[in-house]
């Protein structure tokens, strides 16, 4: 493929069947995202943002439709293949940080490298570098419980970056942070984008979504708007 996209979906849908009801969390999603784009997925609660991110992040499979990541049809892959893709190509940043509470920062950041089979010494070095890159060079041996929310989110970002993924997902990354700390994290994402990373930001807040260069709006599992943001903040 000539003009291969980072992400390409065709008629993607996700349906949750429960005892009495059927929830169409996503319906007929057709989107295409290029390398080094900075995209917000925005919508009210329950609109399907996290569901979409899970599928695009290879954590979950769609009910129907197809999804190409890096030109590879991902919809037919099994759990272990998806794990390898997540390990090599994708980094996640969550609203609740999702760090391992008993491990220190370095151990947390090393985790993807462990599953990538990187030798211990190199693992350690790369984790330290990633932590320094997010400004946590002086907190490396602290445990998450000894850090502030903003610092925790930086650890999570370092973990998302450490294996040089092609794509970073951030699901409400500022949701548990105060405004000022949230802004600092958003600046960090802008830096990442400038350094060539592709970022997909999931949020229900207009103010946060506005940091991206493109905003995709969801409602009731449908894409209702997909436009360039002419005035991205920090960029």
């Amino acid at each position: 493929m000539n003009n291969q996209k980072l992400i390409l979906t065709e008629h993607l849908s996700k349906i949750y069947k429960m005892e009495s009801t059927i929830v169409a969390a996503l319906q007929d999603i057709n989107i295409s995202i290029d390398y080094n784009e900075y995209v917000s997925i925005m919508g009210p609660s329950g609109s399907g943002k996290t569901t979409l991110m899970s599928i695009l992040g290879c954590l979950d499979s769609p009910s129907s439709g197809s999804f190409y990541l890096d030109g590879v049809d991902v919809s037919g892959l099994d759990d272990d293949d998806l794990a390898v893709i997540r390990n090599h190509k994708i980094g996640f940043v969550f609203q609740t940080f999702n760090l391992m509470p008993r491990a220190n920062c370095i151990k947390n950041v090393e985790l993807p490298l462990i599953y990538a089979g990187v030798p211990a010494d190199e693992r350690h070095e790369r984790a330290i570098k990633a932590l320094q890159n997010v400004g946590l060079g002086d907190r490396m041996y602290h445990k998450p419980t000894e850090l502030s929310g903003g610092q925790r989110q930086r650890v999570a970002i370092a973990r998302a970056l450490v294996n040089n993924p092609s794509l970073i997902f951030a699901d409400e990354p500022t949701g548990n942070l105060d405004t000022k700390t949230g802004e600092e994290i958003m600046k960090l994402f802008a830096d990442l984008w400038r350094n060539g990373n592709s970022i997909i930001l999931v949020t229900h807040e207009e103010d946060i979504a506005k940091h991206a260069k493109r905003i995709i709006k969801l409602r009731d599992g449908l894409v209702i708007d997909d436009n360039i943001n002419p005035t991205p903040i920090y960029i």
Binding site: D79, D80, N98, A116
Partner: peptide
Amino acid sequence: TREIGIRKAVGAKKRL
């Protein structure tokens, strides 16, 4: 459970 989720998210295969 959450820790297992994290491990899987960052790429742990089943057998690991």
